[in-house]
Design a binder for these strands. Structure first.
Lengths: 199, 199
DNA sequence: AACTGGGTAGAGCGTTCGTTCTAGAGCGTG
DNA sequence: CACGCTCTAGAACGAACGCTCTACCCAGTT
């Protein structure tokens, strides 16, 4: 009835998967409005027919898929980082360092994929904005869980999670614009200090 | 030789001024790529000829002018808020409240004009990215000055300024996406706490 | 009265946009 | 072998894009 070919070799992903990843990567760099469907098809080595076959909702559906892809990718990193350190303050500090390195290695091109995709789309495309809200809520939940595990009070954990995720977003953007890791470094130090002040 | 007509009535600004403000407002909502020059001309009640007369550099020049406009507008608010309170921690807290109110009143449409304009333009338009970097540095300097005035050590003031501006940016974006002032409220409380921890 | 130049006006250029549409390749099932 | 179905392929459409261009208005100067 159904077969599952789907090999995970880097270049041998299924067409749908290739389209989503390419969309996410392109919108991360050029934003939603700056990314064309024909460019996506070209770079994903797919055709327009395939793109509209898998995403009949057109560009908006591609955008939400890209946001969800970015959500999942960053949630993976976040989860691993928070699990690797017993102290959440240290985990956040390490995370800012890792984000800074990634940004610098991409020559300051690859910021937060969710942010770049959602900015400037709220008006005409509520689906994308919702997916982005879900992504932020998802990340916030991961941070709050880690704080709870470390013994923080529930109220403190939830409020700190808002600040941690917001500050990380802002610092990544500021670092990208300034082409410097300084915003991420400062935010890392201060978030660690803030978290420790609740122990 | 020269006369200065330039009345400051709301609708009687000079054409150039009208174009800049309209561009800034539109790019704040729709981003750089999502805003067309013809739309700018239409809404500014100017013609294409006038737009290219004042901005021969085309869309990129309009974008940088819009970013500088946003820079100046927010710097005004920031300066007044920091001057109105003796305690910088309180000033930041009040600021997050004000930003939240502004966001809610615009039905979550008007986020940071600099952020929305610069996201997704770094690749092809370095001028806009530079103007945005200058805006962030400008705001950072205002915050650092206020902290110095309040007696903070120079190193602490500068590092805190990075975190305050980055966190505000991130919180405004998060609030806009979540359609809620919660991110701004949490960041306001935590930034105040962080600043106070240095006294 | 003639000239000058900053500013206004918008038709039109070539290009790209998102989307639609028809045609066909490949393949497991009747 | 023919059928149906998923997926690939890309030409074509109308609309919008950024930008160029010529023409014109009109105050100030000579």
């Amino acid at each position: 009835m159904k077969k599952r070919p789907e090999p995970q070799h880097s270049d041998a992903l299924g067409t749908r998967e290739r389209i989503v990843r390419t969309t996410s990567r392109l919108m991360q760099r050029q934003g939603y409005q700056g990314t064309g469907i024909k460019q996506i098809a070209r770079e994903a080595q797919a055709t327009l027919g395939s793109v509209y076959h898998f995403f009949p909702g057109g560009k908006q559906e591609l955008g939400t898929a890209a946001v969800r892809q970015g959500d999942a990718e960053f949630a993976d990193i976040l989860e691993k980082m928070l699990a690797a350190e017993d102290d959440p303050a240290t985990a956040v500090l390490v995370l800012t360092k890792v984000l800074g390195e990634g940004l610098e290695e991409s020559d300051w091109l690859d910021g937060c994929p969710v942010t770049s995709t959602v900015v400037g789309t709220a008006v005409d495309s509520p689906g994308i904005q919702e997916a982005a809200a879900e992504a932020f809520a998802h990340w916030r939940a991961l941070v709050a869980e880690a704080l709870l595990r470390a013994g923080f009070a529930e109220k403190d954990a939830k409020e700190l999670a808002y600040t941690v995720v917001s500050a990380l977003e802002g610092a990544e953007m500021a670092a990208q614009v300034a082409r410097s890791t300084q915003p991420l470094d400062a935010v890392g130090q201060h978030l660690a200090r803030l978290i420790r002040s609740y122990r």
